[in-house]
Design a protein around this nucleic acid. Sequence first.
DNA 1: CCTAGAGTGCAACCAACGGTTGCATATCGA
DNA 2: TCGATATGCAACCGTTGGTTGCACTCTAGG
Lengths: 117, 117
Amino acid sequence: MSVPAIDDDLWSAVGDPTRRQLLDLLLAEGGGTATTLSARLPVTRQAVAKHLGVLDRVGLVHGTPSGRERRYDVDAAQLARAVAQLASVGAAWDARLARVKGIAETIQRTRDAGQEG
Amino acid sequence: MSVPAIDDDLWSAVGDPTRRQLLDLLLAEGGGTATTLSARLPVTRQAVAKHLGVLDRVGLVHGTPSGRERRYDVDAAQLARAVAQLASVGAAWDARLARVKGIAETIQRTRDAGQEG
DNA sequence: CCTAGAGTGCAACCAACGGTTGCATATCGA
DNA sequence: TCGATATGCAACCGTTGGTTGCACTCTAGG
């Protein structure tokens, strides 16, 4: 019943703003290297490299060495899975919020009924 | 067009696993204090207190002093807003994934057409 | 009133993480 | 071979989640 039935790794990987931007860029440009990506972001190549390492470790991207550079591409299936989990968390909270709202209304109705007697 | 058009504070507040559990507990039990909540979690009261402070600062919960204790309750509206933003991020990525998939299929079709000639 | 207990808040400290700089290494091109 | 480019590794810094320890406040009993 508890919400955190997620790959916590996956969530925390997507939880970082820079990593989200990175995924966004990779999707928009169809892949890239640490150098090319860092040129588009306000952080250094090293920071980007670290993030790509994290994303690679959880399987959201795949890095393939090609000559002297290393190209990274998004694993669409894995990202889709992450997005689905994101949605499921949202849905769980939505449900709980709805329940809380329902209870609150019930209490209100009960109170009204009691006052009018 | 870029995804991070979110209250980054709100996202990062919800981004922490412990804080998500905290919100979950607060919703389930209809509020609580740092002490009662910490009894349900594998962290100390101090850690819980800090998290409650963060959540309070971004408006996801409200703390009201009552005698010698301080009771916290979820701001359902604010949490609903956060959940909505969560959903919007998911939708944005979904859209992008769909586009990428479409492109990939186009390429595939082009390749097939070329090969059959 | 005084005292014991419960609940809180503040401060110092530690580990992990995002970020930076510096340097060494490997590859491409002339 | 030599210079330029791209990478990887390591040390260092600031922030943050977490802990422990202590002082303060409020409540309840004698």
